[in-house]
Each structure stands twice: as C-alpha cells, then as structure tokens.
Design a protein around this nucleic acid. Structure first.
Ligand SMILES: [Mn+2]
Ligand SMILES: [Mn+2]
Ligand SMILES: [Mn+2]
Ligand SMILES: [Mn+2]
Lengths: 227, 227
DNA sequence: CTAAAATTTTAGACGTGTCTAAAAAATAGT
DNA sequence: ACTATTTTTTAGACACGTCTAAAATTTTAG
C-alpha cells in the first residue's frame, strides 16, 4: 500500500478522519448532514469536499447516497489516527499532561508529515498498544494488534465485574470528572445495581460506591472478568 | 508582553520568521525582493503579505521603503524560533535523528500552538541552551541566555584555535558533508594556513588536516581560545 | 539632470475552503 | 399517489494566498 507523496491539506485530513470515525461507530455509509454536524460546518461545504476527495479516489460517494472510504482513504485515516494516538501517549507519558489536556494538541500534531518521525516516536514510546484513553494504536501498516474485549459499562449486567480499559475521549469535562472520582485505566469496577427506570448504575470501585448516569456509563468501557 | 489569542496562519508565521532571520544577518530594513527570494515566492505576493502583517501591527512598513518587525512581531518571531529549535533538540536527542534531517520536520512542528507544550518540552529536554546546530534557544520571554562568542571560521587568522560552536543549518547537504569529515559541535580546530588568493583554509582537526573552501569556512563558527 | 534600469506596487486572475440562499431530490405522512 | 418535510446539491459570494502582467516609483548611470 504505497501512499505517501500525495499530500493532503489539514482540512482534507480532518474530513477523512471524521468519516473513518463515523464509519466505525455508525453504519457504513455516512450522510452529508451527519458529517456536517461532526465537522461543525455546513452541508454545502461537506458536499464540496466529498467531491474533491472522491476525485482523489479516497472516497466512494454518489450524489444523495452518502459516502464511505476507499481502501486508500482508509489507509490515510489510519495513519492519522496512529499519529494522533502516539502523540497523546507522548504528551501524557513524557510531558506529564493529563488525559483531559491532550486531545487539542494532538489534533494539531496528527498532521505533521514524516513517516520516519512517527515510527521513531513509536519506538521512543516503547511501542504502546493503546493511547491514554484506551484506544488502540494501529501499526505502520494500519493494523490493530488484536484489541482486548471492551464493553460499555451501560451494556453490562448487575453483578458484572471488570477492569476499565477505555473511556470516551470526546470531552475534557468528562475526563476531568473521571479524574475527580479517581477513575483511571486499570481501575476495578463492579456493578452493584442497575436502575432500570433511568438506566443509572450503582458501582463499586476500590471500596467506594459511585452512582453513574446512563450517559456516563455509556462512555466507560471495561474488560469483564470471565467469572 | 501578552500575545496569544491572535492566531496567525502558517504562511504569516513563516513570513515573520523570515523577516526576523534577515533582520539578524542583514541590515535592519528588509527589501521586498530579498524577502521574496528567501520565501521562494514572488515580490507581489510579498507586498500583499506585508500589508496584511502591517495591518496586524506586526511590521513597520511603508511603500517602497522595505519592512521591519515591531516589538510584537519580534516577540512572535522569537516564539517560533524557540519552538523550532526545541523540536530540533527533541528530534536529535530523543529520537536519534541526524542534525541534517531535522530542519524540515521542525519547520512543521514550529507551528504547533500551545505555550504549555513548548514549555513542558523545554523542561523534558533539560532546558537546552542551543539547538543541534549551535543556535541559541530563547526562553519563554524571548530572551537569549548570553550566547557564547561565535566567530566565523572564514574571519579567523592563521594560527587561531577554537572549538566548533555552531554551523549553518541551511542545507542538509552541507551538514552531511560535515558528518563525512566528522566535524561536530565541540570539535577542536586550528587554522594552519589561509590561502589569500581563494580564501580557502587548511585546518587541523583532531590530528587530521582538512582543506575548507571559503564558502564552507564561512558557515562554520568557532569559539576562539584566548591564548 | 535626465534617461535607462531595477525595484516595488497594483490590477486582475485562479484555486482552496468556507458561507447563505435557492433549487433539486429523497423521504414521510395522509 | 400526492403533498409536505427533510436532506442534499447547486449557485453565487467572499477571504486567503498565490500568480502574471502592467504601472508606478526609486535607483543608477551618462
Ligand atoms: Mn484525542
Ligand atoms: Mn485518545
Ligand atoms: Mn532548522
Ligand atoms: Mn537549527
């Protein structure tokens, strides 16, 4: 998969990354409006960009039918995700930033163009498998190293136990809340009770009990014990 | 000196930096053509940019009279130079890049916006005073830490001795040549002979003798021994 | 001092990326 | 099936940064 040499603008890269992220979570064909909302821009701007990226053979897209990444587009998305997550590890592990402070900076650093830099950074960091929020880091070929099973807390049954393996990194405020209750990657959690009427959870974590709303629980991912 | 919040484009930053660099070496008022050549662009593009930066109060500029930096502009230039040189130290010290490989990557990294990142990077690197080419690194206030005396080899007399304190970092090829002859920062040098007709030098370095053209000698800077 | 040459600016154009408003197509409701 | 609504695209505009060609200004030389 020889990419390289094609150099995309930061805008183009951000669109590619957003389409990749939406493809992972939502259905496989991404609507113009969904992408517009994600990019905080207007649908008309999105349409223009979809045309351009389609011309560059990074997207499959047909009028009114939504879009998806081509293999070439996906490879580029993965290289950006790789850089983003490696830089987040650097910021947290080496420069002592908090996990709530790194996303914005990584949004800039992910656009630095140098395969050599990325690979040497990875080696310098000791070939980390996950970023500070538990998200997996693809290797130079865009392959993830068989990620651990991760299940949303919201989808677990009463009585389940597990270890926190990931958290949603979308909002600094949420991560700061997790700081406050001292929840980290690796924390042990047990679901004591699940309140069906509002979806909130009572959980035990290191001898304390905490109440999580459904929204919070949906953003925390654990590896359940097989007990 | 509160700057911040004013965010410049990468283009604007590159112009500011180039004007700063030219102000250091050449006279204090920079001509449009000189800047155009440095930026590898056309004089008309330069004129447009000079107007814009003057509107932002980063330049003093009057039609046909050339330009110079305002204090605010100079502060911005220094913050970019600071970032460039700190990242170069990172690349060489931590990621084992050669001093001939770092300039291009630092050209990108110098535009990352986060004062906190810059300051933490500086601490992580152990508050280096110079970059891998011997150029001084300004502190967070834009102040250089009383740099060592640095004299161009070309301007030294026969018989002078000194330690290499800096080299021109403008071209990777030149730096690779220095690699080949094993000249580094810290190398001890003695000028054995100075050929007046072509300005070339015969120098001794660690028990070897090497011939330098005037062009090469002008790009190497030493701290002379006071003997 | 004046004409030629060099430098610098202006005028007009183009590509990128964005926007608003209007048109076109798809979807939903009756 | 036929509107009404929503989604998406098109049309036209604007800011940015660049270019070429032409005009204006400054500098150099006779
Ligand atoms: Mn992130
Ligand atoms: Mn992350
Ligand atoms: Mn450099
Ligand atoms: Mn340097």
């Amino acid at each position: 998969m020889q990419l390289e040499k094609r150099q995309l603008s930061q805008s183009e890269e951000n669109y590619i990354k957003a389409i990749y992220a939406l493809s992972e979570t939502c259905e496989d064909t991404i609507s113009t409006n969904l992408l517009a909302e994600r990019m905080s821009t207007k649908a008309s701007s999105v349409t223009d960009m979809l045309k351009k990226l389609t011309d560059k053979e990074l997207l499959t897209y047909q009028k009114y039918q939504g879009c998806g990444l081509t293999p070439k587009g996906r490879a580029i998305a993965l290289s950006i995700v790789r850089k983003h997550r490696l830089w987040e590890v650097f910021l947290v592990d080496k420069l002592q930033f908090g996990w709530d402070e790194v996303h914005e900076i990584a949004e800039q650093l992910e656009h630095i163009q140098s395969t050599q830099l990325t690979n040497r950074l990875e080696a310098f960091l000791g070939y980390p498998k996950v970023d500070p929020h538990g998200d997996p880091i693809p290797n130079d070929e865009g392959v993830f190293d068989t990620p651990a099973v991760r299940v949303s807390l919201a989808s677990c049954e009463t009585g389940s136990k597990g270890i926190v393996m990931g958290v949603d990194d979308g909002s600094p405020e949420f991560l700061q809340y997790l700081n406050k209750i001292d929840l980290k990657l690796g924390s042990e959690i047990e679901i004591l009770e699940k309140l069906s009427f509002d979806g909130s959870l009572l959980i035990a974590m290191e001898k304390r009990t905490i109440q999580f709303s459904h929204v919070v629980a949906a953003r925390i991912f654990i590896q359940p014990y097989q007990s």
